[in-house]
């Protein structure tokens, strides 16, 4: 009983900021601090969200966004981890490519979106590519840095026992680099959610990003904020899933 109370208190104290924010948000348009045509109070936003959900539109847009995010993230994890392991393992290749990759990492996916549209058209392909580009670099660079940072004494120890290079790579280097790889994947995941919005605002007819832009254009302000809230929930949900996966695979780490 005491423990339950304690946990409830803990959840409450962590939510204070959020609750205060919603109160302020509700008050601002109602008390006339901001014009309610521009800022809909959360009560109306959640009402709009509820109607969207009833019409099945919320699920449709959210699932499409989620699918785009997952596809982009999956490809960038596959490419980024494999390439990152390879680059981190071969120091010479890393030396050659490091500066180039650092430059690519700084290059905004949004700035490149017109280029992707030119090259790949307005369809799903260029949307997947912008999401892929946004999340590839943190995955790749964290993976290669994880490989480079493996404690050399672990490798020396395995080598002294007569381990082959393949054994060392699979049983020492990959597990030792796993925590950094997961940091990269989580970072990549949140970049994906940002990139999907941009992708859905240009030449799209579905997705939460489209919903936000379309509602703004048709002056359905509560629905617009509903889309934004939906995107926030998508991001939080994805981060939660990735966090759980990370904890599962690196449960050995000391806390």
């Amino acid at each position: 009983m005491k423990e339950k109370l304690y946990r409830a208190g803990d959840i409450f104290s962590r939510s204070v900021g959020l609750i205060l924010f919603f109160i302020l948000w509700e008050a601002a348009p109602r008390l006339g601090w901001v014009r309610s045509t521009y800022l809909a109070p959360p009560s109306r936003v959640f009402g709009a969200l509820w109607l969207l959900a009833l019409r099945g539109e919320l699920a449709r847009h959210a699932l499409i966004s989620l699918r785009r995010v997952m596809l982009g993230l999956l490809v960038s994890v596959a490419v980024g981890v494999v390439l990152g392991l390879f680059i981190g393992y071969f120091r010479r290749i890393d030396r050659i490519l490091d500066l180039l990759f650092q430059a690519f990492r700084q290059m905004s996916a949004f700035a490149l979106f017109p280029v992707f549209i030119l090259l790949f058209g307005l369809g799903e392909l260029s949307k997947t590519i912008i999401i892929f580009w946004a999340s590839l670099w943190p995955v790749l660079l964290n993976t290669s840095s994880g490989v480079k940072n493996v404690d050399p004494v672990l490798i020396r120890s395995a080598k002294s026992m007569g381990a082959s290079k393949a054994f060392i790579f699979i049983n020492i280097i990959i597990p030792a680099a796993a925590p950094e790889i997961f940091t990269g994947i989580r970072l990549g995941g949140s970049y994906c959610v940002m990139a999907v919005v941009a992708a859905e605002m240009i030449g799209a007819s579905s997705g939460l990003g489209y919903l936000v832009l379309y509602s703004e254009e048709t002056f359905n302000v509560p629905e617009m904020y509903g889309g934004i809230v939906g995107l926030a929930i998508l991001g939080i949900g994805l981060n939660w899933i990735l966090h759980r996966a990370e904890k599962y695979f690196t449960s050995w780490k000391e806390v």
């Binding site: 004494v153 672990l154 020396r156 020492i172």
Partner: peptide, 25 residues
């Protein structure tokens, strides 16, 4: 076999699995 000053145990393996490394090899 070599024993290092810094132990060189694999932090992601339990004690028993650490002992098995050389046998796996």
């Amino acid at each position: 076999g070599i024993v290092f000053q810094s132990y060189a145990l694999l932090p992601w393996r339990t004690v028993i699995k650490n002992l098995e490394v050389g046998l796996e090899i």
